[in-house]
Design a protein around this nucleic acid. Structure first.
Lengths: 184, 184
DNA sequence: CGACACATGTAACACGTTACATGATTTG
DNA sequence: CAAATCATGTAACGTGTTACATGTGTCG
């Protein structure tokens, strides 16, 4: 739900062809991982199907240009202006919550692993200074997220130390009737 | 990549049937939004196809129990112990980066909108106290993430004020040759 | 010439979401 | 009885990822 809208937004700047779009996308959004070109073409097809872009002319070099439509322009504006959808399931929190109730699991190990990953990420960010504004923005976002994660991990460790106030439950789900196992 | 593994992890506690799995998942992971049951069955089919679970007996009440296999047990352990995959594209950062280079866009509006959302989320979290450990964990994660986001938004606003040191680029991509437009 | 970047696509797959169909059991 | 909940599934769709097929142009 991010690439599609981003490509559309870029097309608001003027007609582009596929390869060019990938370039602009990666430059302007400081993409961490390269974007597979195939996806650009697939996304363009969907955008066209939905009436947000039109397949325009092909220039002498064979480049197939896509243009944004008025509907597309409206959609892009709306997307750019509005807040991002609320956060989905947090995989880390989910995982730790599960690790706490599973007999074989080792929550402390998970915390340790995750902490070292976050620390490494943070260090990596502090090491290089950004060349563009985009790089700066996404880098900062990453770093702040990593810091928040570290804080959270610390808090979890502390909670784990007390542990009892909440009463862990490592019981297997009952067989037969799904009689709610007490987790409070 | 979270539900599948979570269901598998829960099955490590003992055989479950679909409906029961949904219940346990929502309880144990303090799921914010309800999980569609259909997805449980679909996921179970895939897990079975991949040899991580087996369709076990059906009890007198007609409940179809699934059991985890040894392979599945190994996979679950591995997942639970290891760190979460590195963060993907940050939609908010991407969006703001684009908003900064698009002529029509209003980065300040985006920041404002996002800030009010984050603030609301944070307030909502502070309002209710968690009943279970799981709720506490995921709630804290959400809150810390929201705080980090607010920090980031502040920093972005500050950057926007200076703005010039990085030299914004609102030029459309060149036609023809994708001659890299200077963004530094 | 041979390797590599440019350029356009197609196909298969994974995961997640929603909606729908169907029946049994419980409960007001 | 009627409505809600429990329970098992199926089907369609959207986005994203990877790999592949194919051809042109450029450069050492």
């Amino acid at each position: 739900m991010s690439i599609r809208q981003s490509l559309l937004a870029i097309l608001e700047l003027g007609p582009c062809y596929g390869y060019q779009l990938r370039l602009e996308f990666e430059r302007r959004t400081a993409a961490p991982s390269p974007l597979n070109v195939g996806q650009v073409y697939a996304t363009l097809e969907r955008l066209e199907r939905d009436g947000l872009v039109t397949k325009g002319e092909t220039d002498s070099a064979g480049h197939v240009f896509y243009e944004i439509t008025d509907t597309g322009r409206r959609a892009a504006r709306e997307w750019l202006t509005g807040a991002v959808p609320p956060p989905a399931r947090d995989e880390l929190a989910t995982k730790l919550a599960l690790a706490l109730t599973l007999p074989g699991a080792d929550p402390a190990a998970l915390i340790a692993a995750q902490r070292s990953r976050a620390t490494a990420l943070l260090a990596e960010h502090l090491a290089r200074e950004p060349a563009t504004l985009a790089e700066r923005l996404v880098g900062d976002a990453l770093a702040l997220a990593a810091e928040a994660e570290l804080q959270w991990l610390n808090r979890c460790e502390a909670l784990l130390a007390e542990a009892e106030p909440y009463g862990l439950d490592a019981e297997p789900p009952r067989r037969g009737r799904p009689a709610t196992v007490a987790l409070s």
